[in-house]
Simulated assay, not measured.
Amino acid sequence: MAAADVLFPSAAHASNWGSYQVEDSIIKPTKDAFDPKKHLSFAPPSKVYTMADIGLPKDTGVSPLAVSEPFPLFTPEAVMRMREEVLNDEVMNKCQYSSNLAQAQLRGYADKYAPFVYDAWKHPETLRIVSKVAGIDLAVQFDFEIGHINLSLKTEEQRQRELRAYHDPTTPKTPANDAPIVGWHKDSYPFVCVAMLSDCTNMIGGETALRTGTGEILKIRSPQMGHAIILQGRYIEHQALRALGSTERITMVTSYRPRHPHVRDDTVLTTVRPISDLGELYHQFAEYRLEMLEERVRAQLRELVDAKAAGRRVATRKLKAFFVEQQRFLEHMDREMVDEGEVVTGEIVECSVEK
């Protein structure tokens, strides 16, 4: 969607979003706490694309998965509860960000203002589902990245104008017709699960476009409401294409990392520093990374103690290699925690993967 066709949301938009009409019926959210038996509707995706499938080396990333086709994840009632918690005055006023990649986003709100959203993504059953599709045991990146919202809103007049142009055979089909709502980028985090919170029944477009290893573009269709896709977005250049036929497109994104502390962690903060509360972001980033380091050091210490007890000599080369690896781990953390005065709000630069 071209920037001129995006309404920048305000708290005034939120007042009518608590309930939602879907297929001629009104679904009203309840106040029930998250219950996986009631609020999850998981069915496996029809297809999972591997890195090899999209022309990337098999060892790209930390699991074979590149991206999944959309699959059912949340029930309509769960979606309504999420919309009710997210699209309200307090979240809109306190947690809204924008950048050169995306016009309107809501971030860092879940643990403060959205208990249902928080519990839905942190629940062991949700984590089990996401890990199953991803092909690796995952943990939520950290609380600040639970339920990141991408908002794309249009007036009814804009919607009708775009549809007329789309169906008019005399309208030139230019690159602007495929303009993204989120530009080309690689994610800061290893995995994302992107869930749809809007009714896409009459939506045209809205795909996630991936740049393959051959340079071609693979488009993954947009999920329906309550459905999701999982993408190993840290390693694949991608963008969200604009959608026609609807006055809104609201997606909820939760980021993940490998749970095991000995699996490599390529997390960076490139795409999130300019759209975050840096105090919260840096604290949570440092906390989980130091916990990883602690587990690695404890494991190395146990190995050292066990070797001594068994009468074995110190494996000096192996131990020194461990020191070098952890030094790089800490240096990486230092690079990512850029001094706050040097961070330009809203300005996101290209995100690459270190070799």
Rank of each mutant, 00 (worst) to 15 (best):
A4T: 15
V6D: 01
V6M: 08
L7H: 07
G18R: 12
G18L: 12
E23V: 07
I26Q: 09
I27C: 03
D32Y: 10
F34E: 00
K38D: 03
K38N: 12
A43E: 04
V48S: 06
Y49N: 03
M51R: 06
L65T: 04
V67E: 01
A78I: 02
M80F: 11
E85D: 08
D89L: 13
K94I: 13
Y97E: 12
S98T: 06
S98P: 03
S99Y: 04
A104W: 00
L106A: 01
R107Y: 03
G108S: 04
Y118Q: 08
D119W: 01
W121A: 05
K122T: 14
H123A: 15
H123V: 07
T126M: 03
L127F: 11
V130Q: 03
V130T: 10
V130H: 02
L138G: 13
V140E: 00
V140W: 01
V140T: 01
L151W: 00
T155D: 10
E157M: 09
L163M: 11
R164L: 10
A165C: 11
H167I: 13
P169R: 02
P175Q: 05
A176D: 11
A179F: 02
I181Y: 02
V182T: 10
W184M: 05
K186Q: 12
D199Q: 06
C200V: 08
N202G: 13
G206N: 06
T212H: 02
T212N: 06
E216N: 15
G226F: 00
I229N: 00
I229A: 01
E237Q: 14
A240Y: 00
S246L: 01
T247R: 05
R259D: 07
V263G: 08
V263E: 02
D265Q: 09
D265E: 11
V272T: 01
E280N: 15
L281T: 07
E294F: 13
R296E: 08
L301G: 12
A309F: 07
L319W: 09
F323I: 04
V324E: 12
E325L: 11
L330S: 08
D334L: 07
G341E: 03
E342I: 04
V353K: 09
